Simulated assay, not measured.
Amino acid sequence: MIAPVLQTAVFVLSPARDEVLLIHRNKCTDDLHYGKFLSLGGHVEPDEDVLTCARREVFEESGLVVADLALRGTVMWTGFGPKKRDYLCFMFRADSFTGIPHGGNEEGTLEWVPLNDLTTRPMWDSDHLWLPMIFDNTPAPFHGVMPYHNDKMLSWSFQRG
């Protein structure tokens, strides 16, 4: 049996729907994600549901208030990182927001990245396997499992619909 850490990941689309707001984790050299571009999001707190967490994390990390959150899928990472932890991440796309994003936080800087440039940004290699499903037009969410050994993906499987 596993007892995963619950997380959210939110991909905020620009009003023209051609860019996504990402955080470039470029401030803490001892960060496991140092140098990589990631979605906004984080850990679910004991007193909140995943939607509340997603909205809170986006506001904390960017200053934006998101609406129209669409659950695009889930990914279960097992054995990830030096502590070999299990994570269940709820992946959302935010199609609208209010506010103006600030520059970032103690983890990194915010950047609007063109959707057609996502593959050129430093990310976890495995992100490219599920990232297209965040932005496609298929209504059914995907649900995947991605076992890791430290920082190396071992396999990937998913179902949709």
Results as ranks from 00 to 15, higher is better:
His33Arg: 08
Leu6Glu: 12
Thr8Val: 12
Glu19Ile: 02
Ile23Pro: 00
Asp18Ile: 05
Arg25His: 13
Gln7Pro: 12
Val20Phe: 04
Phe11Ala: 02
Thr8Ile: 12
Phe11His: 07
Gln7Phe: 15
Pro15Leu: 08
His24Gln: 07
Leu6Asp: 14
Leu22His: 01
Cys28Ser: 15
Gln7Thr: 07
Thr29Ser: 13
Lys27Trp: 10
His33Lys: 10
Asn26Leu: 06
Asp18Cys: 03
Pro15Lys: 02
Leu21Ala: 03
Ala9Cys: 12
His24Tyr: 06
Ile2Leu: 13
Val12His: 04
Ile2His: 09
Leu32Phe: 13
Ala3Tyr: 11
Leu22Asn: 01
Ala3His: 14
Val10Gly: 01
Met1Ala: 14
His24Ala: 02
Ala16Asn: 08
Gln7Trp: 11
Leu13Cys: 01
Pro4His: 08
Arg17Asp: 12
Gln7His: 14
Phe11Cys: 09
His33Phe: 15
Thr8His: 04
Leu21Trp: 00
Ala16Phe: 09
Glu19Cys: 03
Asp30Tyr: 07
Asp30Pro: 01
Leu22Lys: 01
Ala16Met: 08
Glu19Arg: 00
Leu22Glu: 03
Met1Gly: 13
Asp18Trp: 00
Leu13Glu: 01
Ser14Asp: 07
Leu6Gln: 15
Arg25Leu: 15
Asp30Cys: 03
Cys28Ile: 11
Ile2Gly: 13
His33Thr: 08
Arg25Glu: 12
His33Ser: 07
Ala9Asp: 08
Ile2Phe: 10
Phe11Val: 05
Pro4Asp: 10
Thr29Glu: 08
Pro4Asn: 11
Leu13Arg: 02
Thr29Leu: 06
Lys27Glu: 11
Pro4Gly: 07
Pro15His: 07
Ala3Met: 14
Arg17Val: 13
Val12Pro: 03
Thr8Gly: 10
Thr8Pro: 10
Leu32Thr: 04
Val10Glu: 05
Arg17Trp: 11
Ala9Asn: 10
Thr29Tyr: 08
Asp31Met: 06
Met1Ile: 13
His24Asn: 05
Leu32Glu: 03
Ala9Pro: 06
Leu13Ala: 02
Ile23Val: 11
Asp30Phe: 09
Ala16Trp: 04
Cys28Val: 15
Asp31Pro: 06
Glu19Thr: 00
Ala3Ile: 15
